[in-house]
């Protein structure tokens, strides 16, 4: 994932809207402030060389993924169990 930059000037409309720019941008097109690397999730300033997400957002994303897998796994298991019962009934008829 490509890193993103954002404007950290609290008075800039681009900051309010949490607009993100590509790495090639140096200054904010709206207010001219120098852009900084920001987290794609919460828009907080990241140190240079950091990943695209801050520690908290990265873990949040992982948690959601794990939770999704866990839930979808349960759903598949439930669906499979129902299917097996249905097939057994059909076969027995």
């Amino acid at each position: 994932m490509a890193k993103k930059k954002g404007c950290l000037n609290p008075n800039c409309p681009s900051h309010e809207k949490r607009k993100m720019y590509d790495e090639a941008y140096i200054r904010c097109p709206d207010c001219g402030e120098i852009l900084s690397y920001v987290c794609k999730g919460c828009y907080m300033k990241l140190p240079n060389g950091a990943k695209t997400l801050c520690v908290r957002c990265e873990e949040e994303k992982k948690d959601k993924r794990k939770l999704f897998r866990k839930n979808t796994g349960k759903a598949f298991a439930g669906a499979a169990a129902i299917a097996v019962v249905a097939i057994k009934k059909i076969v027995s008829k």
Binding site: L8, C39, Y43, M44, K45, L46, P47, A50, V55, R56
Partner: peptide, 16 residues
């Protein structure tokens, strides 16, 4: 840097 990234109330700037 680590603490500001873990703190949900921090914006990572010098004012953070």
């Amino acid at each position: 840097d680590l603490l500001s990234q873990c703190d949900k109330n921090d914006d990572g700037t010098d004012r953070g």
